[in-house]
């Protein structure tokens, strides 16, 4: 990046692509931990990685269709990535039903299929090139206004659904069996949330890339659950951590002229490390005392 002779804030006013990057990042930073929390509680942390690898198959097939076959009407392979992410999610749900007692088996199966298809179509498209590299590691600076619209619509739908069905989602995530007894349509809820998850995963590819998607969704939640007092409080903290890593990561990557996706993820991991450190050395004893006080009530 050759812009670094002006400060980040000034550059934001001068360059629209930087503004798009920041706005996209801030929206993703809000919705990924929101959906990520429910994913973590259901112990599906690997699902984001699996779906992002399956999206990569969509991306490489897209590149193959556009560059080799000449299907130029597919304007952006990211749309195919979205479709593949949803297909991957459906595969996972089918396999989870098939292996009732070994549900996690579904993840490596779908992930392998996605990775194999990706490798096949990348080689058919003439091997590795810079656009594949961008999809693997993210290229938030190339996000355009059209993509921003897709992300905004998804964010509005996701936030709307969470607000509408918050209680049901909490009951299902924490205790599926109890939710069924209450008469909540658990399968229907899970189906819808998996589809939305798939769309969010494929959208985050533009921000941090296929290989780093799950970090956006999982790491802020992993840090927040160590210090959160309640479910809502943990959600809020996770979103604050996530936004800090996105804005901080973008700023650092601009100032130091380094890869944006990687910087965002590294800031995320740094926050996780700091939370662990402070909890271990400054908060743990107070928490223990507090716990004893509560148990004496």
């Amino acid at each position: 990046m050759l812009l670094a002779n002006v400060p980040f804030v000034v550059a934001l006013f001068e360059y629209p692509f930087l503004r798009y990057a920041l706005i996209t990042g801030v929206i993703m930073g809000g919705i990924t931990p929101l959906i990520g929390s429910f994913v973590v509680i259901r112990r599906l942390s690997f699902i984001a990685d699996t779906l992002s690898h399956f999206s990569l198959a969509g991306l490489s097939i897209g590149l193959f269709l556009i560059n080799i076959i000449g299907f130029t009407f597919i304007s952006d392979p990211l749309y195919l990535a979205m479709v593949f992410s949803v297909i991957g999610a459906l595969f996972i749900e089918i396999l989870r039903g098939y292996y009732q007692n070994y549900k996690e088996i579904s993840m490596p199966i779908v992930m392998s299929l996605g990775t194999a298809l990706s490798a096949l179509f990348i080689s058919l498209s003439g091997g590795f090139n810079s656009s594949i590299y961008n999809y693997l590691f993210g290229s938030i600076l190339t996000v355009g206004d059209r993509y921003l619209v897709v992300i905004s619509v998804t964010a509005v739908i996701l936030v709307g659904l969470v607000l509408l069905f918050y209680k049901e989602m909490v009951i299902i995530s924490f205790d599926e069996q109890y939710a069924k007894l209450l008469g909540i349509k658990v399968n229907r809820f899970q189906f819808v949330s998996t589809i939305i998850l798939a769309i969010v995963v494929s959208l985050s590819i533009a921000t941090v890339g296929v290989l780093l998607v799950s970090s956006l969704m999982i790491i802020p939640v992993a840090a927040a659950m160590k210090v959160g007092k309640s479910f809502k409080n943990t959600l809020t903290i996770a979103i604050v951590f996530s936004e800090t890593s996105i804005i901080g990561g973008l700023w650092l990557s601009y100032e130091l002229n380094i890869a944006s996706g990687a910087t965002i993820v590294l800031v995320n991991v740094l926050i996780l490390g700091l939370v662990g450190f402070f909890k271990r050395f400054f908060i743990n004893k107070r928490l223990k005392d507090n716990q004893l006080k509560i148990q004496a009530k």
Binding site: K167, F174, Q177, M225, F231, T234
Partner: peptide, 24 residues
Amino acid sequence: PQKFDEFNYEFPITVNEILQVSKY
């Protein structure tokens, strides 16, 4: 249930949040 084995622990949630009054 037995030892609440179906319940997902460790994630922070308050007693009130578990016992939310809902349409259910």
